[in-house]
Amino acid sequence: MRIDIEDLRVAYAGRTVVSGAHLVAAEGEITGLVGPNGSGKSTLLRTVYRHLKPTAGRVLLDGTDLRTLSPTRSARHVAALPQERGGDFELTVREVVAMGRTPYKRAFAGEDAADRDIVAQALSDVGMAQAADRRFTALSGGERQRVLLARAFAQNPDVLVLDEPTNHLDIRHQVELLTLLRERRRTTLVSLHDLNAAASVCDRLHVLHAGEVVASGPPRDVLTPALMAEVFGVRAAVVDHPLTGDPLIAFDHRASEDSATRVLDTYGN
């Protein structure tokens, strides 16, 4: 299934946070949202998994407005890993992951063998099978992150919506998580702060700046020195990764304040 976002506008506390966003998450592709802090990435994702209601525009799932679906039907199609993780579950790791099966259960129905197999596989996929009987509250931040991702996998959705899924993960688990997403080939809409990770894992990027989508396309077309300067305010060069051939962004961490302006003067808008 694909996600189409049409002229999306979101406002709260009297302030417009997303203004007129148009973007696509194509079926089976990983679509990345990148942009500075406060650019509207998380707000946009919250409208996709129905935590926020847009003031205008639509989020379409294969042409159907997600708002017309019941919460249960919507949850069977779209699973989310929000940035607000929560850490007060007085449950075991396995019980937290089993919550992902809720959209498929009747009221008060217990789990069956198929549910147990799905939960076990989800835990194995994120490398947390050995922690199934541990208390969720006893886990580190990175371990909790992987358990909550397993819960989203157990939901068996058509679309994954992930808000900064690599937060709190060490480099090994970041690489494993991003590799897992590519192997699954599930329609995925993901926000990432790490632009090099986004360039490596995403088929398409949408760049948000001040609540607007200012660039869209394959990472190599989008992540240019001029965009780095204009949107992120940094001086950077884009080269080929020596191991993968993906775009690799080299930032100038010693740049002076006017370096980004000089990049724009050199490369243009």
Rank of each mutant, 00 (worst) to 15 (best):
I171A: 13
M1D: 09
L23P: 02
A229Q: 07
P157A: 08
A210F: 03
L123N: 01
V239H: 09
T188R: 03
L69V: 13
I3Q: 08
L223R: 02
M128Y: 02
A150C: 13
A26K: 15
T43D: 04
E143I: 02
P103K: 11
H253R: 03
D115C: 03
T188L: 08
A198K: 03
N37H: 14
Q130I: 00
H51D: 15
T64F: 03
A199N: 10
G86H: 04
A120T: 06
R182D: 12
L169Q: 11
G211Q: 11
G233S: 03
T224K: 06
G20N: 07
L169E: 15
E27I: 02
T102M: 08
V97H: 04
A80H: 10
L61W: 13
V147D: 00
V17F: 14
N269T: 13
P82C: 11
T166H: 07
L8Q: 12
S191A: 15
P36T: 14
G28D: 08
S259K: 05
L60V: 05
T31H: 07
V214G: 03
N156P: 00
D117P: 00
E6D: 14
V59S: 13
G35K: 13
L264A: 05
G127K: 04
V214D: 02
G217C: 06
N269H: 12
R85N: 15
F89Q: 06
R151S: 09
D88I: 04
H22A: 09
A250W: 03
K53C: 05
T47D: 02
D163Q: 13
I30P: 04
P218K: 14
I118A: 10
R101H: 01
L61N: 06
R73V: 04
M99N: 01
S216D: 03
R151D: 00
T72E: 13
R46H: 06
P54R: 08
G110H: 09
L149G: 02
D115M: 01
L160E: 02
M1N: 05
L69S: 05
P225C: 09
G38A: 10
V96S: 07
A237Y: 03
D133M: 02
R101M: 00
A226P: 05
H241A: 14
S19Q: 15
Y49V: 07
L139Y: 02
N37M: 14
T68H: 06
V34E: 04
F153T: 00
S42C: 07
L139K: 02
G28R: 07
H241L: 10
P242A: 09
V231I: 12
R134W: 01
P103N: 12
P36F: 12
E6P: 03
L205Y: 11
G63L: 05
E90T: 04
A197T: 06
F153H: 00
R9A: 13
K105A: 04
A237Q: 14
H173V: 01
A237W: 04
T137S: 14
E6Q: 15
L248E: 10
L223S: 06
E183Q: 15
I171T: 13
L169D: 09
T31S: 12
T137Q: 13
V190E: 11
V207R: 09
